[in-house]
Design a protein around this nucleic acid. Sequence first.
DNA 1: CTCGAATATTGCGTGCACGCAAATTTGCGT
DNA 2: ACGCAAATTTGCGTGCACGCAATATTCGAG
Lengths: 229, 229
Amino acid sequence: MTTRRPGLREEKKQATQVALREAALRLALEHGPANVRVDDIAEAAGVSPRTYNNYFSSREQAIVAAVTAEREHRVAAAVAAWPAHVRLADALTATIVEQYTEPRDRDELLLITASPALRDSYLDAAATIEHPLATAIDQRLGGTGTFTSRVLATSVAAAVRVALQQWLQPPPAPLATSGLLLLSGSLPDLLRSALATLAPALDAAEEQARRPTSRQVRGAADGQEMTGF
Amino acid sequence: MTTRRPGLREEKKQATQVALREAALRLALEHGPANVRVDDIAEAAGVSPRTYNNYFSSREQAIVAAVTAEREHRVAAAVAAWPAHVRLADALTATIVEQYTEPRDRDELLLITASPALRDSYLDAAATIEHPLATAIDQRLGGTGTFTSRVLATSVAAAVRVALQQWLQPPPAPLATSGLLLLSGSLPDLLRSALATLAPALDAAEEQARRPTSRQVRGAADGQEMTGF
DNA sequence: CTCGAATATTGCGTGCACGCAAATTTGCGT
DNA sequence: ACGCAAATTTGCGTGCACGCAATATTCGAG
């Protein structure tokens, strides 16, 4: 009763979703992102314009989804797959660096970086990993502290977002200023650096989980005294 | 040349902005959020509808802004105001708990929690503190590691968002399940708990800053070896 | 005081997001 | 195979977001 058989219905939905995002990407590459209306995408995918917005809530979302497709699940799965003795922070870092550095199509990246709207949408897409990641982290932490896991997952997603943002930042033309302006750097380095900042928090949460003192009230007094101010 | 005198112009802009958000809030309380068009708000504020969108990029944003007005600056200022010997994590926690618990109007809160669109907008507004907060944190850390500060600020904002989200979650009707499902809890507790999760990362960054080994390349090799490519 | 550059406001036009209710499709029980 | 209930697609209507170019306002300099 709880798990109704998915069946053919779900499959079709999936197919439509794929058709839409692939059509979106293709058309955007072909005619430039500004010259693609959602009506065009819908038509190319063989559905009504209204249906498009049942699947995506903005014009850019479909294009970006074509590039980032399934990344969230791959990240979650990869994190869960690391052996238990590996530090959570290391598992996360390695996984994320890997997933965000995988062979990307040059044209696709250019397409996204060129259009401000697409850049924004791409950054927003980083938040997509939050939920799967929270689940994966929660599992690694023993499944007790859902709230803590959510905070960590969200923070990780936020850190990734900042790294991407920095990376996408169009290098200011002059660059003539004094010392190195800690300019954009490579994406793997940026990701590692961003996650390294959060590593201590991940370590602490892991430590907590390994030494489960009091099970109850977890989340209201996590790792720190909090006397009334 | 770099700092042109602000003058009267800026003042008027500020006034328009205030007029718009106050009109928005008033109308929303009066007629319900669903029955307020941006044209109404614009008219009530004495500007053209088009101008509304020069100040706010969604209908909800103005309403929410009326409630969260200036919070970002207050947070940043308050963080900066703590004496230097106080742990960054403590300063942040105390400040944020204070700022998010200050006397809130009952009607306003109800208005926001009642409408899904407004709830979402309210959560998004938490991201507003990112930039000022990054600046404040950067100052406390010695002004060297802009990137690290940004990561921390964004993570803090993300944590606050999760806390608010949890707090706003409509408690599921039954609630009959076994032990306490770490149910919604009080907002201060949620905020403290969320920030406690990040505290170790803040501590580490502070420690780093206090013991400034190599000044350069900060941000690309922060707290961790990153061999490899 | 007056001019001119910088900046803000406005109107217009276009495409977009989405609530709603009707029509269509799917999947299961009989 | 039949038909009903649930889920999906679709069309329509409304309000919204925003690029663009024209217009109005501000402000400093001469």
